[in-house]
Simulated assay, not measured.
Amino acid sequence: MIIIEKMISIIIPVYNTEKYINECVTSILKQSYKDYEIILVDDGSTDNSPDICNHLAKQYDCVKVIHKKNEGAGIARNRGLSIAKGKYVTFIDSDDYIGSEMLESLLKNIEERNSDLCIGGTVSINLNKQIIHTEKYSTLQIYKNKDEIVNNLIPRIFGSSPKKHDAIKIGNCNNLFKMDIIRRNDLAFESERKVLSEDLIWLINYLMCAKKAIVINSTEYYVRVNQTSMTHRYNPERFKLTIIQYERMEDYIKLLELDDKTIYRLKKQFFINIRECIKQENNCNFLNAYSHIKKMVNNEKLLFIISDYPINQLGYKQKIFLKLLRKKRKIILCLLTKLKII
């Protein structure tokens, strides 16, 4: 395949987002940097998304469309990667949009510093475009060699330290990757139906192949927080996938010979994921929610992970939550879920 120098391939998995695709693509068409291709991967949508994708491809030469059966966003991204012609690649979700200088900012930083990866921040918004949260990195961070990536950057991707929020976001939005690294190492996304976060596993696998990475203070990516999306929908497998992901991350820590501080970062993120597992039980009636939460708090792996964690270093709310887990306070956790306090 011919790789076009300095072109950025933008891969967008599309599944039933007819309300948002046009805004997503329009935000790309308004970019200050113009050398890009847009690859829309229709992942078996059942609404009008396929027709909208086809219309955009007819209207704009830079837009390509792939139609495939539904297999999830990770597999859809792999299909996009298989036809990408850019030297670089970035990923956008079809219900999100980007600021006009995102591509230029990522490309300028990755090229000027001869980096293998550029990571930017995000802005989370609700359906009315009101800002919920901004993930911004205050200063330029340069991880100039393999050792710094493994010992300083990857631990922060596992999660925050017990005492403060200093994590690097899990995800590939507002990130720029090199296609030659992806192809040389046969990197591919796993299905989110088999892992809790295919983004996290992808990012760690990529970083293990990189020699230099940078983090910039750009917040040009807008994440639309949609409670009906796959991320927020009730998933009866979420707890099992959370345990599986923790064990996968443990394997990475052993492989990379990372220290106990990284294990505490992993555990803190694990507790955040457990909170989401319990929080989603608000969608069930009280008896079912109680039954599900009872299974969680009695899980041997969960209890072992909590057993030696420095709970007293956490903030008040986090501390209370973990103590309730440790003491298996099922009814209280269930009530707090129903009251939407968790």
Results as ranks from 00 to 15, higher is better:
N128L: 12
K129T: 04
K129I: 02
K129V: 04
Q130G: 09
I131M: 10
I131T: 09
I132F: 11
I132Y: 11
I132D: 07
T134I: 13
E135C: 10
K136E: 12
K136F: 07
K136L: 04
Y137Q: 03
T139N: 10
T139E: 09
L140F: 15
Q141C: 12
I142R: 05
Y143N: 04
Y143K: 01
Y143P: 03
K144A: 12
N145D: 11
N145G: 07
E148G: 06
V150F: 01
N151G: 00
N152S: 13
L153F: 00
I154V: 02
P155I: 02
R156P: 02
R156E: 03
R156C: 06
R156I: 00
I157A: 03
F158Q: 00
F158M: 05
F158G: 00
F158I: 01
G159P: 03
G159L: 03
S160L: 07
P162L: 11
K163S: 15
K164A: 13
K164D: 14
H165P: 00
D166G: 08
D166S: 11
A167I: 01
A167G: 06
K169D: 05
K169N: 08
C173S: 06
C173K: 00
N174I: 02
N174Y: 01
N175S: 14
F177Y: 15
F177A: 04
K178H: 11
M179K: 13
M179H: 10
D180C: 14
D180E: 15
I181L: 15
I182L: 07
R183I: 07
R183P: 08
L187A: 06
L187R: 03
L187M: 05
L187I: 09
F189M: 04
F189G: 01
E190S: 13
E192T: 05
K194D: 08
L196V: 00
S197M: 01
D199I: 04
W202M: 11
W202I: 01
I204W: 05
L207H: 01
L207A: 05
M208S: 11
C209K: 15
C209F: 13
C209P: 06
A210M: 08
K211S: 15
K211E: 15
I214C: 14
I216W: 02
I216A: 03
I216R: 02
N217F: 03
S218Q: 07
T219Y: 07
T219N: 06
E220K: 09
E220A: 08
E220F: 13
E220T: 03
Y222K: 04
Y222R: 05
Y222F: 15
Y222I: 10
V223F: 15
V223P: 06
R224E: 07
R224K: 10
N226I: 04
T228E: 12
T228D: 13
S229Q: 02
S229G: 08
M230T: 14
H232V: 04
H232Y: 15
H232D: 06
R233H: 07
N235P: 09
P236W: 06
P236Y: 07
E237S: 13
R238D: 03
K240L: 13
I244W: 08
I244T: 11
Y246L: 14
Y246R: 06
Y246H: 10
Y246D: 04
E247C: 11
E247H: 09
R248Q: 11
D251Q: 14
D251G: 11
Y252S: 04
Y252W: 07
I253W: 00
L255M: 12
L255K: 12
